[in-house]
Amino acid sequence: MMEQMASQVRSLRSSLPLQQFKKNAPIKIACIGNCILNKQKMLLNLNPNIDVVFTSNLSNWGNYHAESFKERAEEADIVLGLAVNNNNQLFQTPSDLRATYGDKCVIVPSIWLDGTDTLQSFSITGNVRFFGGDPIVERAKEIGFDEVYEELIRGKLNTDPSGRISRSIANLRNVESNCDFPMSDYIEDTYQLRPVANAIGHPSSIVVREIFCRLVKTLNLDFKLDTMFTPHLMGRLSLPGTQRVFSPYDVEELKLTYDHEPHWMLQAKSLLNLIRSKVKTGTYLPTENSKVSY
């Protein structure tokens, strides 16, 4: 029943054409991306001289009407794309976008940060994966999940957050070779000082803000960057979080200057129960070698 409803929603979203640009808009921008670019659309539309339309590059989220996006992109002064290589209804890679739209195409880095915590669940195209979960599953095969929980809360089981965050930043640098501005330098300089991710594929508000500041400078658009980001606007930039284990051991290993989550032990119990259930039913999906949003 739920899958049938989801299929009907996806069909509806793919059949809804994008709105037309305002006829007299001085600057017209067509965006294709995920939730990160959707927030950029919201910010860009704060300028009355700019009109922005957005389509999703994910077939399981948002409006992804292919034909109307192509029509809007032809009409647009600027086409914003995201540096992703996953399968979608429109374009496969940033190179495809550039080949189609040439100099008016600008590619924004996709932010995908694994390793900001011990363990985290995140849904990828409808399938929940547990980042940091693979070493937990391997250890549970040896001693069982109850004993794994005891090791985890006592800091005796390490899921290598420092290695994972380093690989995430390295992957981001690689992705940036196809982008018009970088973000890896900001992530590397900031993650130990302030939270940079609400979830693996959902950067925090300060990162969304920094993407916008760099985008505006790249496009030479007129925004009052020093004063526009009020507390209310920063709240509107927030992307959803997810269930995770962010522990005192993560703070120590990653050398963070901010505190762990207070309910991390309860989160650990809950997530381990979910993983145990997935393993028992044969539906646990390893994260190693999994396709991510890059």
Rank of each mutant, 00 (worst) to 15 (best):
M2L: 15
M2F: 14
Q8D: 08
S14M: 11
F21N: 00
K22W: 00
K23T: 14
K28Y: 01
K28S: 05
L44P: 00
L44F: 08
D51Q: 06
V53M: 08
Y64W: 09
H65I: 12
E67N: 10
S68N: 00
F69K: 02
F69H: 04
K70I: 01
E75T: 07
N85Y: 10
Q89W: 00
L90Q: 13
Q92H: 13
Q92N: 11
D96Q: 13
L97C: 08
R98P: 00
V108Q: 05
S110K: 01
G115H: 06
L119Q: 02
V137K: 02
V137Q: 05
A140T: 12
E142W: 02
G144L: 12
S166H: 10
S168G: 10
L172S: 04
N174I: 08
V175N: 05
V175C: 04
T190K: 11
Q192R: 15
V196D: 11
A197M: 04
I200H: 01
S205A: 15
I206Y: 02
E210C: 11
E210Q: 15
E210M: 14
C213A: 12
T218E: 15
L221T: 11
K224C: 11
D226N: 15
T230Q: 09
L233H: 03
R244H: 12
V245A: 04
F246H: 02
D250I: 03
L256K: 10
L285R: 10
P286K: 10
V292I: 04
